[in-house]
Amino acid sequence: MERPRLRRLAPYLLLLPGLGWLLLFYVYPAVQMFVVSLWTGNITEGYQMTWNWGIYQQGVSTYWPFIVRSAEYGGLATILAFALGYPLAYTIAFKGGAYKNVLLFLVIAPFFTSFLLRTLSWKIILADNGLVLGPLKSAGLLSEDFRLLATPAAVVAGITYNFLPFMTLPLYVALEKVDVRLLEAARDLYAGPWRPGGTIVGAAVGAVIVALVSLILEVNPLVPAVIGGVLGAVVGTFLISEAFVRVTLPLSLPGVFAGSLLTFIPAVGDFINAELLGNPQSQMIGNVIQARFLKITDYPMASALSFILMAAIIVGVLVYARVLGTEELTGGST
C-alpha cells in the first residue's frame, strides 16, 4: 500500500522547494521586519522592544501623501502601459505572423540591461539640451527653460517604460489564446468593422487617458490631450470592431488583470525612477522607506512603512479583484 500514500504526498513534496524558498526569503524577513517595526531606540544606543504600535498610526498620518502619490504614479503608469501594451500585444498576437517571436524578443530585450542603467540612460537622452529636447529647443518649438528630467512626468514615463513588458506579456498570452474561429463566427453574425465608432471611441479613450495623466502631473492638458486623441483614433480605427468589443476584449480580461497587477504592484513601491528622474516634489513612498533605512537609520519607521505599503497594496488589489470579478482572476472565462 505504498503507492497511494506516495501519490497523496506528491503534491506536498512538489510544493516543498517553493514553500521553503518563500519561508526563508519572504516570511522570515517579513516577520523580522515586523518585529523591528515595534522597536524604539536608535543606532548608537541600541533598540528595545517596546511594542510601539503607535508607529503605524504615526507612519500613516505623516506619510499618507507619499502613499497617495505613489498610488497615483503607479496607477498612471499602469494605465499608460496598458494603452501602449494592449495594441502592441494585439498586433503581435494577431498580425505578428512569422515575426511573432522576434517581436516578443524585442519586447523583453530591454530586460537584458540592468534596470538602473536603463533609467540612467533616460537622463542622457532627455537631458535639458540633449538628443530629444536640444533640437526642439533650437527649432524654437519649446521654451528654453522647458525640461522633462526632474519632473513628475519623467518619473511616470520612466516607470511606464521599465514595467511595460510586465503588462505586454500577460496581455499577449491572453490574446494569443483567443480562438480566431470565434471572431469569424462573430463576423458571420454581423459583428463587422465599426469604422466611425471605433475611431471615435479610440480618440475619446486616448484623449481622456492623456488628459488625466497631464492633470495629475500638473501639466496643461490641452496639447497632450489632442495628441492622445489622434493616436487613440488611429489605434481605435484598426483595433476596435464589434467583434473586438464582444469577443476579443472579454476574452483578454484575464491578461488585463494579470498585467495590471504585475505592473502596478512593483510600480507603487519603485524608488529608482523617482530618485533619478524626479525632483523634491515627486518622491514616492519607496524613497521614504529607502531614506529611513539607509540615511536616517530609523529602522522601526522604515519597517512600519513597508508594512503599511504592503497592506495598502493588498487592500487595493482585493478591491480591484472584486470590481473586475473573481472569475477573471482565475481565468475562468477561457
Partner: peptide, 18 residues
C-alpha cells in the same frame, strides 16, 4: 549626539522631499 543626529537628518529628509 545620536538623538539629534536622527532628528536632524529626519527633518532634512522631509525638506528634501522624502
Amino acid at each position: 549626539d545620536a538623538t539629534e543626529e536622527q532628528a536632524w537628518s529626519s527633518a532634512f529628509a522631509s525638506v528634501a522631499g522624502f
